[in-house]
Amino acid sequence: MKDFVESVLRGIGTGSVYALLGLGFVIIYKATRVISFAQPAFMLAGAVLVTYLVGPLGFFLGLAAAAVLTGGLALGVERLAVRPMIGRPVFTVAIITLGIDIAVRVVVNAAIGLDVRQVGDPWGLKVWKLPGGVQVEQRHVAMVLTTAVLIALLFVFFRYTRTGLAMRAASYDQEAALAQGVSVGAVFALSWALAGALAAVAGTFAAVGGSVSESLWLIALTALPVIILGGLDSLPGAVIGGLAVGTVQELTATYQGSLPWLGGNISVVTPYVVMFLVLLVRPYGLFGTREVERV
């Protein structure tokens, strides 16, 4: 029982990182109908920026600054490299984003250098003890709380602000939004900026308790099954998908010892297995809309 509860808590912690990444993918997808494979690079860029900013600014301010800077970087990349491709086949644009990912990562890797770079968070691997001997890692609590705050902010943004409303409208019918005077270009740019900022936070939290390295990229890869299982165009889907994948992954990691014939690393594969099972039952993901299939 203790193992179970601890795995679930860990799962929700790592799952909230997946949720943040997934939200970024979905925001870009809803605005532009493109899956951006550049998200992993922004995740890495954000974490590396934090390692540089934590000295002068401290962790929290550093994280906020890194999120803003990464958002700005993503906005610039969209404007320079993605916008000119609008109207090309979706596949072409997706490949362009893959190219962007590689380019940004090359630059960021140079910035990592040979040292061990840490994000300088206050939690490390410290734990809190709960009743019943259950231990919960502080970093996981921090991840969940941060994610919850960001989700609440996004909700308010999309529900109540003029710009958020314009983004929702443009996502539903671009031409009709244009006809009301919405600048669809600004919507594209903003979607990339938001996704970049979210990726920066996700990347930083993924590096908490360890160090920043190129292997963060593997975590970003997990966001793909997350969004496909949640439904490509659903923000709640990205959150629930992220939490579900995180939890299943941790549970498998904990209990795979009792199923030795599965081998030692099955938890890495579980996101894809979950995605596969969900798609069997619900071809558009848990919360996806049907129309998405036609795009």
């Binding site: 409303l165 929702r168 409208a169 539903y172 019918d173 031409e175 009709a176 939004a177 006809a179 009301q180 005077g181």
Partner: peptide, 13 residues
Amino acid sequence: TQVMEGRRTFAEL
């Protein structure tokens, strides 16, 4: 301002 053919209201909003 143009009102497009077929109304084109934002059905989800």
